[in-house]
Amino acid sequence: MIEIAVFVLAAAAVLGGALGVVLARNPVHAALGLIGSFFGIAVLFVDLDAHFLAAVQVIVYAGAVVVLFLFVIMLLGVDRSEDLSVEPLGGQRPLAGAAGIALLGVALATLFLAQGDGDVVTGTPSVIGSLAGGENVALLGRALFTDYLFAFEITSVLLVIAVVGAVVLARTPRRRAGDEQVEP
């Protein structure tokens, strides 16, 4: 009973936040909607006994990713000057709408086609087994460092590449002796 109430509230937060992201005219309000959505997802994780994932969801997505979004929005000052009626990419709104409807269709089709066979949609234990009753961290850690070690290491290599790329992009090129002096 309580689980259903929590689910409904969290789902409302997720959907409301998502609508806010799409509909808000102000980029900062859109980012706030995104945070609301992430918190809803964290609550859903708790509802599913995935406590560790819930904490990580807030720390990583709300605490780091969206903070950086907001940081860029503030630094670039796009929050006040952006005119949303001008579209930089023609036709992206109808395309995005169509893609969204298609995705919803797939989700609904899976839900209804699998009615007879409950395992398809829910009730399937995750790849690391049921999280209920166990220590999340131990289960996740064991799975990450045994079965999924390769994927884990590849991900860390990917992140290192991203860091190196960021450093290369952010590095100011050194002026050579013959270059013209440009007054700032």
């Binding site: 560790f52 819930a54 904490a55 807030v58 720390i59 709300a62 605490g63 780091a64 903070v67 220590e135």
Partner: peptide, 15 residues
Amino acid sequence: QPGILLVLVCSSVAV
């Protein structure tokens, strides 16, 4: 269960 991680959660919301 996530225990001390909640401290990090709170400090990341406080930002």
